[in-house]
Amino acid sequence: MTSTFSMDWLFAALIFFIGAYCMAVSRNLIKQLIGLEIISKAALIALISAGAFSGNTNLAQALIITVILVEAVIVATGLALLVKNYRLNGSIDIKKLDNLRG
């Protein structure tokens, strides 16, 4: 199992980075939410790998079930806000969100 362990964490870091890149480059709000999802996939990989490696798989499973629920709630509420924003501004472009200036 030892060799899988470092591979898990390298791929978790890579996937985290892909999500962060997605959130950095895209102007589209849906893309931003997809980036968020990819980031939380990386977190799930980290959790299950740590749990499996330390012989605590069941605890890790319990945590992952909760995290998945949290993720679903976040995406649902985030998309609800996005739809409301689309109705108000007629756009999902993040660059147009600059009404607040000091």
Partner: peptide
Amino acid sequence: APWAAVFELSVC
């Protein structure tokens, strides 16, 4: 981790 996998499959 079958339980987590099932949740991932159905929810995510």
